[in-house]
Structures are given as C-alpha cells and as structure tokens.
Design a protein around this nucleic acid. Structure first.
Length: 288
RNA sequence: GGUGGGGUAUCCAAGUGGCUAAAGGGCGCGGACUGUAAAUCCGUUCGGGUAACCGUUCGCCGGUUCGAAACCGGCCCCCACCA
C-alpha cells in the first residue's frame, strides 16, 4: 500500500518529530503537523517547533497558520488540514501526519465536530446561564431541555454541558439523537488508508529527555519569546496562554522573575504530566 | 545558652479530646471528552480484603483518660530572633 497516509504520534519529547522527518524524507512526503500549539506563529521555542533549517527542505503544513491573539480550534484545524491534504495529494505526493495533539489527531480517523450551526444568540444565552450559576445552572438548563441528557453528558463539566445545550437549542433535537447522528458522520479528512505509528519510550528515557529539552528551551530564549507573545496578545487567547512552557513562564514573569530553577522544574513537571495524558488519550481514544 | 515558632500520610498543609485513616492541595494511578484539547471534567490515592471488617499511623518515650494526632512530663531534630 504505497499510498497509505503515515500518521506518526507519541507523547511529547518521544522523538516523533525526528521520526517523521526520517520517514517523510525517505518516501518523499510532505508533512502535515498535528499540533495545537505549533499552529500559532511565534510559539516556536516552547512548542518545540522544528526551525525551517531543521526541516530538511520538506514542506510542512499547519504550522504558523494562526496569530497568537486569535482563537484556533479543531474545526479550523480540520478545514485547513483537509485543504492541505487534498492539495498535496493532487500534486501526487505522499503525506505524513505528525504530532501529539490527541483530539486533532482524532480528526484523521473520525468526525470530531458536527454540522449543527449555533447562533451567536444561543451562545450568548448559554454564557449568561454559566455566569449566573456555573455548572449546576447549566446542568439544570440542559435537563429542562432534555430530561435524558444526564445519561450522555458529563453534567459536572461546564464545558461539555455548555456545548450540549447549544446543540440541543440550535437543532431542537434530543442529546441522544444528536449523538447517534454524530456517530454516523464520516471522517472529515475523507477516505484513505492509514498507517498509525505511535512512538514511545520508557520513562527512564523520557524523564531525562524532557529535562534536557526544557533546559534547552530556557537557554535558547523561552522567556524572551514569551514576552514577545505577551506583547502580541497571547493573554487574550486562553488556549495559547495555557499551553505548557508558556503558561509557566507567564506566571513566572508576573511573579517577578525570581528563581529560574523553579521555572525549570515547573515546566518539567507539566511536560511530564502532558506526556502521560497523551499516552492515555492514544490508548483510549485512538486505538481499539 | 535564652526566647518564639515548628515536626501530621509520597510532598505541601489543615486539624487541639470521641463523628479522624485523619480536611484541602500537589504528585501518582484510573476514566470521560463533538468546535479552548498542551484544555476541561470525574473517580481514586496507609497496608490487607469484593465487602463487613481487620492491621498499622500524626518526631521519640512515658503518663492522664472509657477514649489522644490533639492534654501532661521528658527527650531528639528543624527554623527565626536574641546572646
């Protein structure tokens, strides 16, 4: 199957970027990144984005496609990645998908969003409910619209409940219907053969790799990069400002920039738990 | 040497007589997740047991009490200030 799309993923710092480059180089493929942070311009050091000089002349897509001040999400990822995917294949080249953002990666396997369009008015209503009473108020609202919703939606999670209310209000359908229709949706990237490769290493290798990479990030200017991003509006973007490395640096800067050792260990700690979380996602949501 | 503060589970940290195997947080572990996903949320976290329950625990030793992490005495460490 020489046309298979090779999908390379793995926890952060496992070495998937290198592997992807090796593989892509060997088969003359272009790379579509699957990383929710590398999509942002200027988030380079902290996201371990390979510098242009490290890309071995291979074309990379879905990197630097958004401003840090603007929100990005899976929906946009799907749109842009699909466009790049079609374009590359139209040129007769092969594709390597590489990255560790689990939810984005899922889009290469199945639907991740539905087609219900939610009006700004409905969204504003939900926001008001949340502001007034938080998760309990959202749960109450959802149950008033659909008494069975509790079976399908995590009512403790305001974000999930919020989304469910929106969809129910916009479609007039019950959660169960929305869900079963969603499950029937095709993969947004289309039909193609996949070759999923999950890169991983034992903790005994991961721990020092993460420590070393974090050290390197700080030494090569993570703090300055973060300052620049702040001036470009990263603080207005909740997903970008909460990404690992930047989140800690922002906190460290606002706490007075004392004790660089603490910054280092905070980032290492967060990165370690990210790696664990990624493994779980791959295990539970990407493989059968 | 003196004065004050402190020693609680893997870490930080509440708790001043029973309802305490011991609040809360972190870490770890498990799980959920359709538009913030490197996010958000849930469960679990002394040992044994499916459980009832049993065993061991709050610096150490001893005491008071029906009963102590908590009260009393002694001792050992740590921190701050004074000398």
């Amino acid at each position: 199957m020489p046309n298979k799309v090779i999908i390379i993923t793995g926890p952060t710092a496992s070495g998937k970027t290198e592997t992807a480059l090796d593989v892509a180089e060997e088969i003359g493929a272009e790379i579509i990144s699957c990383d929710s942070v590398q999509v942002y311009k200027g988030m380079d050091i902290g996201s371990a984005k390979p510098h242009v000089s490290e890309r071995r002349g291979l074309r990379h897509h879905l990197m630097d496609v958004a401003e840090v001040s603007e929100h990005f999400n899976v929906q946009e990822y799907v749109l842009k990645a699909r466009a790049a995917f079609d374009e590359i294949r139209a040129r007769g080249k092969r594709v390597v998908v590489a990255g560790g953002s689990g939810f984005y990666l899922k889009a290469w396997f199945s639907a991740v969003t539905d087609e219900i369009s939610v009006s700004e008015d409905i969204r504003a209503q939900c926001r008001r409910i949340e502001e007034r009473g938080g998760a309990p108020a959202l749960a109450e609202k959802l149950l008033s619209l659909d008494p069975d919703a509790g079976k399908f939606v995590d009512m403790m999670n305001p974000r999930r409940t919020f989304r469910a209310i929106e969809r129910v209000m916009a479609s007039g359908k019950k959660v169960s219907e929305i869900l079963s229709e969603f499950k029937k949706l095709p993969c947004p990237m289309g039909e193609f053969e996949r070759d999923l490769r999950i890169i991983d290493r034992p903790d005994s290798e991961m721990d020092p790799r993460i420590a070393e990479r974090t050290r390197k990030m700080i030494n090569s200017g993570l703090v300055d990069e973060t300052r620049k991003l702040i001036s470009q509006g990263i603080l207005q973007n909740p997903s970008a400002k909460n990404s690992i490395g930047y989140r800690e640096t922002i906190a460290w800067l606002s706490a007075g920039s004392q004790d660089e050792g603490a910054l280092f260990s905070d980032i290492v700690k967060s990165t370690l738990s990210l790696a664990k979380k990624q493994r779980k996602y791959f295990k539970n949501s990407l493989t059968e």
